[in-house]
Amino acid sequence: MKGVDLRIDSVAKHYGPVVALGGVSLTVAAGEFLTILGPSGSGKTTLLKVIAGFEYPDAGHIVVGGADITDVSPAKRNVGMVFQNYALFPHMTVARNVGFPLQMRGVPKPELRDRVFRALALVELQGYEERLPAQLSGGQQQRVALARAVVFDPTLLLLDEPFGALDRKLRESMQLEVRRLQRRLGLTTVFITHDQEEALVLSDRIAVMDGGVVRQVGTPDEVYERPADDFVAAFIGESNLLAGQVAGPDRVLLDGGASVTVTDLDGGKGRVRLLVRPEKMVIGPATNSFSGTVVEAVYLGQAHKLRVRAAGGIELLVRGDRPMEAGEEVTVGFAPQDAHVLRGSA
């Protein structure tokens, strides 16, 4: 079993006056796990439906393994999909659900039984063949859906927010299991989610979508450390965005009046915004220091989250390793290389 590459070429889709997809282009390499991350209404679900063939695009092409499948019906695309609510057939047993795609392909009975058995073994559900979906837990239903989506050796695996309905612990173990399965089968996978943490954990690359367009494509650390714009910066993780004016080769004059040193300017001029992640902030004196008051302190278990109000109306989120009280005076800061410069209009 080997995955093939997927090319999404300028795909556009309108619903009346509403633009769901405004010309999306993406490539997914063979065997790659690509996550499409975005808030609801960003067009990510529409894009997945276009890839699966449930929606027909107004413009653009879907190319899988070099073949244009834009006009091919969903039944002939050979794409495995796990739906948000799993979409298991409630009147069929687990074995019949998993065997369904094979039956539709005319696989002879003994081979069908063998492949269903192997698919269920893959998701560790041996012995559940004769159960009905209603007799399974959420996690088990998900495994059945996964087995059904991979049993017929699909060219692509599509996952539509499949972990949304699971509790946190189960979600984490299912995420790892899906990732393991995907690597083992070498399946080219497109995963849809609005959960940025999930995206960071699972993906080879992440495409961040908003308003029907792709804002940025990159590896998890690229989109986290070097977001392309304010939206990506704010959507993935927590962030401090400081607006200011370039005042020198390595100086930025912040709107609040403070002046900071950064290394990432590359000779640019004009308005910029500086992104500093809360965990890059330090408590105590630094190259760029701010003194202020703690207005909120939250205990997170492995860390403490502080909201610090400094002079000039600047509020900073800081991830610290020691407890502090609201109202305490504190000095916080960041190193020049820890600020990422964002240009263009906010």
Partner: peptide
Amino acid sequence: DPTLVLAAEGLGASRLQAFLRVTLPL
């Protein structure tokens, strides 16, 4: 659930098969 029909088609069922195997029994 309409997604059941979509799921059937995505898994390789023609419209008629999806109807006979999913919608009709349900």
